[in-house]
């Protein structure tokens, strides 16, 4: 700096050191880019880690579930109800397809074709996230103990505060009694 310094320590006229020079704007802009780029790893680290993602998809053998019962599988940290429905339960669900419902859906749209006996739903009440109880309530489906939501044998909301039917996970049958969820 010595070679550029002047004897007079004051700035020369019209030479405000804080003037928005191009180079200062460039420095601030570069800093901004860096800050944004640095923020990303610190945000992304809270997303699911590799081992969590590895369990995002599971395969389940459902051969042992007797008709009229359900198997509860933990999938992505939540319960999944695998319900082996009886013909009577399927009939009850189909009969109500056109009944007055909050979230209308045909029973056939909630199962895989040819596999109507298997109803696979995420066991989380669409109201505030509690786990509904199996086989209770007025419609033979589920009853949520937290706020009294009642689901039918197709997992559709029939009474109570929940706004939506029990959600369906992505799943497919990989064999006659093998199902891959997620």
């Amino acid at each position: 700096m010595a070679e550029t310094a002047k004897a007079n320590p004051h700035e020369t006229e019209g030479d405000d050191p804080s003037r928005r020079d191009f180079i200062h704007i460039a420095a601030l802009a570069t800093a901004g880019v860096g800050a944004v780029a640095t923020a990303w790893p610190f945000i992304d680290q809270m997303n699911p880690s590799g081992d969590t993602l590895a369990l995002a998809s599971i395969e389940q053998d459902i051969a042992k579930v007797p008709a009229g019962q359900q198997l509860v599988v933990k999938w992505r940290g939540k319960p999944v109800f695998v319900r082996h429905r009886t013909p009577a339960e399927i009939a009850a669900a189909v009969k109500d397809d056109h009944a007055d419902m909050r979230d209308p859906a045909a029973d056939a749209s909630r199962t895989k074709a040819g596999k109507q006996e298997w109803l696979i739903v995420i066991g989380v009440c669409t109201h505030l996230g509690c786990v509904p109880n199996f086989g209770t309530g007025d419609y033979g489906g589920w009853f949520c103990p937290c706020h009294g939501s009642v689901y039918d044998t197709s997992g559709r909301i029939r009474k109570g505060p929940a706004p939506l039917n029990l959600q369906l996970p992505d799943y497919e049958f990989t064999g006659p009694t093998k199902v891959k969820i997620g």
Binding site: M1, A5, N8, D15, P17, H24, A27, T30, A37
Partner: peptide, 23 residues
């Protein structure tokens, strides 16, 4: 690479701000 460029720009900015101050 980013830090190198940023350092260079900041150095130029520094030289510009201090250019009239004897120190």
């Amino acid at each position: 690479l980013y830090l190198f460029v940023f350092t260079l720009i900041t150095y130029l900015s520094y030289r510009r701000i201090w250019r009239n101050v004897a120190h």
